[in-house]
């Protein structure tokens, strides 16, 4: 992938990376959205949706509580969706390799958010005197530059991730040795484990939660039986 080919994805990664914290937190950065949109940009929205669902299940483990550090899914979803959608259909290594690339991107991008917050704190320190005097210009400058840097951060992370992972995933897919059905099952089991444990952690204090979950399973089994 060339820089020019990565440019539309970089713009998408920038916009969706901005949504994570800065503006407008409408959850367009969630992987179920970001991967699907990236897949659509490549021309395979259904492939983007499929990896988006896998990443969304894993992302249930990382809800953005307060000042905690968490992976950044906006850029990562774009990278995962674009990588998977760009592989030929039916290649067994495509999903595991693309999910791995997306998780690595999410981790790196999460760290870049920490760096950005420190940069903003540094800028605040330099303009603290003016802000304490009630300077509108200093406050607006700090705030708008913070958002601009966040936009830039998403674009840089997405571009670098695409330039690194695009040839890597293609090479992995070409030399993949595991059975096709086995390959997808591993991804599904991992996603199910993480999602199930994450939902338990979030909802275990809800009264009769096990019974509600069991009720859902009964509904599922009934639906399967009726089909």
């Amino acid at each position: 992938m060339t820089f020019l080919e990565a440019l539309p994805l970089a713009l998408l990664g920038a916009l969706l990376g901005l949504d994570v914290v800065s503006f407008p937190q409408a959850m367009i950065a969630r992987p179920i959205v970001s991967s699907t949109v990236a897949g659509a940009l490549i021309g395979h929205s259904e492939a983007g949706l499929l990896i988006g669902v896998v990443l969304e299940l894993i992302a249930l483990d990382t809800l953005p509580f307060g000042a905690s550090r968490y992976p950044e899914w906006g850029s990562a979803g774009v990278v995962g969706g674009a990588l998977f959608a760009a592989q030929p259909a039916g290649m067994p290594g495509a999903l595991p390799a693309s999910v791995l690339a997306a998780l690595l991107t999410a981790s790196i991008s999460g760290s870049s958010m920490v760096v950005l917050r420190r940069i903003i704190a540094g800028r605040l320190e330099r303009s603290r005197g003016r802000i304490e005097e009630g300077s509108r210009a200093a406050l607006l400058s700090l705030h708008l530059s913070g958002m601009t840097l966040d936009l830039l951060r998403g674009a840089i992370v997405t571009t670098l991730a695409m330039l690194v992972f695009s040839p890597l995933v293609r090479a992995i897919v070409a030399t993949w040795g595991s059975e096709p059905s086995y390959s997808r099952s591993v991804v599904v089991v991992v996603a199910a484990m993480v999602a199930g444990a994450a939902l338990w952690k979030v909802f275990h204090s809800v009264r009769h939660v096990i019974w509600f979950f069991a009720g859902g399973i009964v509904v599922y089994v009934t639906l399967v039986f009726l089909r």
């Binding site: 800065s22 503006f23 000042a67 917050r117 420190r118 903003i120 605040l124 958002m147």
Partner: peptide, 10 residues
């Protein structure tokens, strides 16, 4: 909608 635009550790 942009209230966290300059979110920082300070």
């Amino acid at each position: 909608l942009a209230v966290q635009g300059s979110w920082n550790y300070e």
